[in-house]
């Protein structure tokens, strides 16, 4: 799709979310959470493009969320707090990134996992500061100076999430088609050639890593504003796993996939929990398994295949059926 068409599609999707949230009030919260996670998943997609999977990105989610919770009493405005929280996530991402850049594949994933688990333990251990598993409650924030009612505030969170999602999505697309983004794909296939070309692969990956940490930070900040309660569970390895889960569910090749995946994930979880409170994990797991086995391109891949079929007629269906990144 061309840039303009993609932008239009993104805007249309955002409008659809707003319409849904207006028609079904309880979905407003679910959609806010889905948008937040979608932004974080964009970061996972960046790393996936380089063939790297982080099982610890929940840490950056939690860093921003806890920053928001700690600083909200002093900086009570969302517009001021957001850059601080995301900045801290990115800064930690830079420091950690300098260290984990030396590693690839499973070691990369495991080191991220280990560091996030250490961070998770700290959140639990420093009980007098973090209140452990009880978590910290966020006071209501102001939005660009305006104090909002409870109802208006939930709208403000959703709308800011959507705006941030559009900006982040556009930025990631631009990044992908930039030389730095192209080099990222090179790490996955032939890292040494990058070296020959004079592009240091570590720097390429480091840039992506810092951006992904910042994106996770944005997601974490929105989550904190939406739930208004931050707990160490945000940093647990299953939350990191969830982000990777969503990336694959949505389709790892596309910005839209991240948000489609997040929406599908959250809605499946909510409905599974409503129908079978006892076995919602089993349902989510089965959905994931089916997607991987039968539609490895994820939801976005399925959509593309359907679109492709319609555009090119039945003859093209077989080749378009390859799907996937």
């Amino acid at each position: 799709m061309s840039g303009a068409r993609t932008l239009a599609a993104g805007l249309a999707a955002a409008l659809l979310v707003v319409a849904l949230a207006w028609a079904v009030p309880w979905l407003r919260f679910v959609l806010t959470v889905a948008t937040a996670k979608g932004i974080a998943v964009l970061g996972i997609l960046l790393l996936l493009r380089a063939g790297q999977v982080s099982f610890g990105h929940a840490m950056y989610l939690a860093i921003a969320a806890y920053t928001a919770a700690f600083l909200a009493p002093r900086i009570p405005d969302a517009a001021l707090l957001l850059p601080v929280a995301v900045g801290l996530s990115a800064a930690v991402g830079l420091v950690v990134g300098l260290f984990v850049m030396r590693y690839r594949d499973i070691f990369f994933g495991m080191l991220n996992l280990a560091l996030s688990m250490v961070f998770y333990s700290l959140l639990e251990k420093l009980y007098s500061i973090t209140h452990g598993t009880d978590g910290i409650r966020l006071p209501p924030l102001t939005f660009a100076g305006a104090t909002l009612s409870v109802e208006a505030q939930s709208w403000a969170v959703l709308l800011s999430a959507l705006v941030l999602a559009l900006v982040a999505g556009a930025a990631v697309r631009v990044y992908w088609s930039s030389p730095l983004g192209e080099a990222l794909a090179g790490i996955k296939t032939r890292e040494q050639r990058l070296d020959f070309l004079g592009v240091p692969p570590r720097l390429v990956l480091l840039a992506a890593y810092v951006i992904s940490a910042a994106l996770a930070g944005i997601g974490g900040f929105i989550l904190a504003m939406a739930t208004r309660q931050v707990t160490p569970a945000l940093a647990y390895w299953t939350t990191s796993g969830e982000l990777v889960f969503i990336a694959v569910l949505g389709g790892a090749g596309s910005v839209f996939g991240a948000f489609l995946g997040a929406a599908a994930y959250e809605l499946t979880r909510v409905y599974a929990a409503a129908f079978v409170a006892d076995a919602w994990q089993m349902i989510l797991g089965s959905v994931l398994l089916l997607v991987i086995l039968f539609a490895p391109g994820g939801i976005w891949g399925i959509g593309q295949r359907l679109l492709g079929r319609r555009a090119a007629g039945p003859g093209a269906a077989a080749t378009a059926g390859e799907g996937g990144p």
Partner: peptide
């Protein structure tokens, strides 16, 4: 992709 295989096991774990 290796990540898909890993997620297969993650899905199995949930089930």
């Amino acid at each position: 992709e290796p990540v898909l295989q890993l997620l297969v096991t993650f899905a199995l774990f949930m089930i």
